[in-house]
Design a protein around this nucleic acid. Structure first.
Lengths: 209, 209
DNA sequence: TGATTTCGATACGCTTGAGTTTCGCAACGC
DNA sequence: GCGTTGCGAAACTCAAGCGTATCGAAATCA
């Protein structure tokens, strides 16, 4: 594979360059299929190639196995974290955050992707790590910042454990979305109710401090 | 298929009766394989038959497809709910409850089964329904009873929403077990810390009532 | 123009597992 | 003993999908 020098000095291989469009089509097809409820195990390279309108060779030239492809596909997801506006109250910021989780959890596509992240993660550590990195950590940091600010303004208890608060807020919403929506869709004010309930324990106790 | 009358008057088919031992072996093998991390998609009848020391025909005679078998296997699980002793305080009862969840979530086998229940549930509604029925509902009721008692004794706020409390307790523990144990195993006092944090919001506010 | 590489398409050999059938034996009631 | 049904084992057909190879066309650079 001879290299050639471009004007910018970047080495590039001779011959026809790889198609970025094909690459994107492959990633999109993978996410589409996953979003339709196909698990990693059932996911076939042939189906991805067909969906992407691409030859199998084009896939194998880029990824040597299915797991690598799925990891890259998951990593390509840009999590829509509308970071809570810094001007709002802690309550409003947390409500906004939980509303995002609720809305995402209502979409079949997001739920399927989350299922894969959570379930197949047991067998594919790299996938779990990547998902944590792109989807969990940024949010954890965002919530931690909100909580830190709340502590500084006195809206929250000074000894509040941000990690615990994060777990309570996210965990409670996830539990509701997973196990409580069997008969009815989530009520519109679910985010508010969770935040208000949690804040009962998060706020400073009157008569203390 | 001719029927015959037993002494008890129960109709039973002619010929050799089906082996309960084989049936149990099939169920056990299924749960074993699932517990080892085999997903429903990769789970093969052949592997189950081999593991159970049974012919494939013996499986097909009882279950017409894989989903039916998995549903029955999951349903055979007796969830170990050590119902909190009624004498203990609400705090102790809830700590006991969360400890059970934590201990279960630490076992690979239980985690695999839960993963299947939660993830494959999206595609297999009967499986989700059954799991909810045998694993979620009994616990929900147990916790609801504890909370009801706490409200009656004045240990908890009279307007506390039992459903919300359940979601907070279980959801928070599940979140921790799923996303917080990446670097270290759960601390021994995790159950206590969650309950104490939650109770800060669950107890009556001083000066109110 | 020629060398090189990628493109999509198609075909190929191979493995896995589904679901069925057949076999000889075992367990039951009569 | 006889009829019936279940048993495990093995063989079978069939389909899906893997990973590789080959094809002619297209894209890029020297």
């Amino acid at each position: 594979m001879k290299m050639q020098q471009t004007a910018e000095g970047v080495a590039r291989p001779a011959g026809r360059p790889r198609s970025e469009k094909a690459e994107k089509a492959i990633i999109d097809a993978t996410l589409d299929l996953i979003g339709e409820g196909i698990g990693v195990a059932e996911l076939s390279i042939e189906a991805i190639a067909a969906r992407a309108g691409v030859g199998k060779t084009t896939i194998y030239r880029r990824w040597s196995n299915k797991e690598d492809l799925v990891v890259d596909a998951m990593a390509s997801l840009k999590p829509p974290i509308p970071l809570p506006e810094q001007g709002a109250s802690v309550r409003d910021a947390l409500v906004t955050y939980l509303r995002v989780i609720r809305d995402e959890s209502s979409q079949v596509r997001t739920r399927c992707i989350m299922n894969i992240a959570m379930s197949d993660a047991e067998r594919h550590p790299r996938l779990a790590e990547r998902f944590r990195e792109i989807a969990v950590e940024p949010r954890r940091r965002a919530v931690a910042a909100v909580i830190q600010r709340g502590i500084e303004t006195g809206e929250l208890r000074p000894d509040l454990d941000a990690e615990m608060a994060m777990a309570i807020l996210s965990g409670t919403m996830m539990w509701h979305m997973k196990w409580a929506h069997q008969d009815r869709q989530p009520s519109d004010d679910l985010a508010e109710r969770i935040v208000d309930e949690a804040l009962k324990g998060f706020r400073p106790r009157p008569g203390e401090d």
